[in-house]
């Protein structure tokens, strides 16, 4: 019963964020354009050799999604802070976890769309063929997105309300995300470029473990972080 209430509240928060994002199309479009730009720059950095570019595609696409996604995490609290809406939102009973869950879902959808665009672009730009095992790739993308978004949403709750938030969020977040990035990149590499299939399996289980651990921890700790 109570859990169901929380679910409704979380969904309302997520829906509100996504609606605001959709109304002001500029936000998502700009971030997506930035992600594509980063991919193009990676292409320049990695040279015109198409073999080298193909081999580096998994790393480039996850980093492009990460760099662009970080902007979304800070934005998701910025909207509330600018409108002075965070305090009233927190007044509702049991609203904190629901608020976090809602933000998490909204950011998840945002990053997932971003990843779809980034992957589609890198298939073209980096001349990678869609692998026959694309359902496995889909699972890796979903798990990787959960990993990025969980800690991203959590740390953005702090960084967006501190001085120097633009530098603080990536500084806190990127080293913590090293396991997710390694696992997602290696699993994607095994699936896209080829390599031992059981590698992808091991990395996927690491992703699952990371996601579960930090989902639990962030939900436990969010009360403390948002209240201060």
């Amino acid at each position: 019963m109570a859990l169901r209430d929380e679910w409704h509240r979380a969904r309302a928060v997520a829906w509100k964020d996504l609606t605001a994002e959709r109304r002001s199309k500029a936000g998502f479009n700009a971030v997506a354009a930035l992600a594509v730009t980063i991919l193009v720059l990676f292409g320049f950095a990695l040279g015109p050799d198409s073999e080298a570019i193909r081999a580096a595609a998994p790393g480039a696409l996850w980093l492009a999604a990460l760099f662009a996604g970080v902007l979304a995490f800070n934005r998701s609290y910025q909207m509330e802070l600018d409108g002075g809406a965070l305090e009233p939102l927190l007044m509702y009973p049991g609203a904190r976890r629901a608020l976090f869950a809602g933000k998490l879902m909204a950011n998840f959808v945002f990053v997932l769309l971003l990843l779809v665009i980034v992957i589609a672009t890198s298939l073209v730009l980096f001349q990678v063929a869609v692998p026959p095992t694309w359902p496995a790739l889909l699972i890796v993308v979903l798990l990787g997105a959960v990993g990025l978004v969980t800690l991203g949403t959590f740390y953005a709750a702090m960084a967006s309300r501190s001085r120097a938030r633009e530098v603080l969020l990536p500084l806190l977040l990127f080293p913590m995300l090293v396991p997710v990035l390694l696992a997602a990149i290696q699993a994607t590499k095994a699936l896209l470029v080829g390599g031992a299939m059981n590698d992808a399996g091991a990395w996927t289980s690491l992703l699952v473990a990371y996601d579960v651990i930090f989902l639990i921890l962030t939900f436990l700790a969010f009360d403390y972080v948002i209240e201060a």
Partner: peptide, 21 residues
């Protein structure tokens, strides 16, 4: 409060980082 969360997460992350690398 914030640094308590960040410090705890950082320490917990160590074995995961080590495993992955």
């Amino acid at each position: 409060q914030w640094s308590a969360a960040a410090g705890l997460f950082g320490a917990i992350n160590y074995p995961i980082v080590y495993m992955s690398v």
